[in-house]
Nucleic acid binder design. Structure first.
Lengths: 323, 323
DNA sequence: TTGTAGGCGTTATCAT
DNA sequence: ATGATAACGCCTACAA
């Protein structure tokens, strides 16, 4: 900047004003500065700017796995909003590890990012409270933070699962099996509980649940067991899209055509055989809302922590019509 | 850091040494400093560190679309390598726009990132040469940079397309249609050229190509035309995974069961009907290799620009066996 | 083993 | 409308 200032025969402060588009620079002065910038190929050093201002114009995003479509769509949405606000996106995968999540958080905070958007792993987050109080806003996505009151964007897991159960019940299914993830994951626990209450409310069996099996073999065995009964399971609800796909493979493997409703839509759900009915979430909206919440806080909005709960949508496809 | 120094009754330099794990600090001194750090909740300001060192410990990644599985897998691989090297990942979507690509590049360079990994949009990159010369390494992925000699990681498009054509020819197909993207995209052009040479080498027709149609309608109409002939097309090769899926939908729409081989594998390719034979690329390997190339340059490796060409793999599924 | 001085490039403050 | 000067927090070089 000094070089530019010299060449344009002005002070560095004037150069700074031009670079930042501030008011109060005569057009001809600005022109001289711009020309000097062009000639020297000058580019502002944002590290210095960040240091002086105390904050970096970037937001940190921590997801479980960047290559999972659910998270990459969230990431893309966050990045789009961030760009409109002239912020960069720093992104990392915690891979379900609380330690990595803390490391990433620490790295982002060291870089003095303007804010953080986090899909939290299983763990307590009270240690983040100090940072929050120190003025770095944090928004949680998909699952709320435990031990901490912070903004969050969630999906209406309860209504989503209920819509799946009611849909199947309306088609005459009485014994519905639920395949979920490890209930230590907040969403898995929520969906399991929702399955319990939805089935109970309709007078259906609530005990046909299995949390954990991820492999085709395990699920295939389970399906065999559930369908050997004199009063067999005739429909499945799966707790996330990976389980939907695995269940589909398992059903093919054992040659059973049970009805199936999956939580979370997935690419080509309409092209597989059978096309899978799903309870669709809207990950792009989740990312967008989270980023909006964050930038609102950055704009100085106060008040208590907000929680945005997004609705789900039942997308009926062929797998509803089996059995 | 001054606060920590005061509390531990040492100089800031000693604190700096402890924070950076440098040699030559007595254990008891280190213990005192660590305790002060803990008490004060101190966290190093990386903006200041970056400024002083002249480089940020982060790498910038520019892709076309963060939510596309191909790119998100590349991103995840880059991030993994970056983390091992204690670097953060800054990521953005250029969305096929040369202007956005330049903006993002500029933003990353302003932040003085250690290096750049770019999936280039259609355009000349000689303007980047100055930065390259100034010491910021750049690695291109999926397509090479034009007007600039830089490291690149590519897929062997020629061998990939050839393997598809030879596979179909071996199954007796003589009239193979090729559906590609706009040949302004480097990969699309490469694959089209490869199709031309592979068919010519086998004495097959090379003129059954269509570059551009992306919609089910357009492709359906094309298939109708190609199959109305007295000497009809019996097999298709598609130039990327979106086209594979669209072609699949189009074939269903018009009720034709042509053989199909797609370039690039996709999730559930084995579960759709018919399961689609593909020429698989390895995006995770591409991202990983690109990051390795970058860090090798950062470690001071000199020499001319390297180009790494990764092989493809033909994955045979049901769609090979039609007609 | 530990400390002092100076400067990285920018922006805020206060002058002019 | 423009400029001089002092931070921002850290690290390099050198000194003790």
């Amino acid at each position: 900047m000094v070089d530019v200032a010299k060449r344009a025969a002005v002070s560095v402060k004037t150069v700074s004003r031009v670079v930042n588009g501030e008011e109060g620079v005569r057009p001809d002065t600005k022109a001289r500065v711009d020309e000097a910038i062009r000639q020297l190929g000058f580019r502002r050093n944002d590290s210095a700017s960040d240091l002086r201002r105390g904050r970096a114009e970037g937001i940190g995003l921590i997801v479980e796995n960047m290559s999972d479509p659910f998270y990459s769509v969230i990431g893309a949405a966050v990045e789009r909003v961030a760009r409109l606000q002239r912020h960069l996106l720093l992104m990392g995968s915690a891979e379900g590890s609380a330690e990595r999540e803390r490391d990433l958080t620490g790295a982002f905070l060291s870089r003095r990012v303007a804010g953080l958007i986090v899909v939290p792993a299983i763990e307590d987050h009270h240690w983040l409270a100090a940072e929050l109080a120190a003025g770095t806003p944090v928004v949680f996505v998909d699952r709320p933070a435990s031990g901490l009151s912070a903004d969050a964007v969630l999906t209406d897991n309860d209504a989503g699962v209920r819509s799946a159960v009611e849909h199947l019940a309306a088609r005459g299914h009485r014994n519905i099996g639920f395949l979920g993830d490890n209930p230590e994951f907040w969403t898995a626990g929520q969906r399991l509980a929702a399955f319990g209450s939805a089935t109970a409310a309709l007078g259906l069996r609530s005990d046909l649940t299995a949390m954990g099996p991820h492999e085709v073999e395990g699920i295939a065995a389970l399906v065999e067991t559930w369908t050997r009964d004199s009063d067999p399971v005739t429909a499945l609800v799966t707790g996330n899209n990976r389980l939907s796909v695995t269940a589909l493979r398992a059903l093919r493997r054992v040659g059973k055509r049970l009805a199936l409703v999956g939580f979370d839509d997935f690419e080509l759900a309409d092209m597989v055989e059978p096309a899978v009915t799903v309870v669709a979430q809207d990950p792009a909206a989740m990312g967008e809302q989270a980023a909006h919440l964050l930038f609102r806080r950055l704009a100085g909005e106060g008040g208590p922590a907000r929680t945005v709960v997004l609705p789900t949508r039942l997308v009926v496809r062929d797998s509803s019509h089996l059995v």
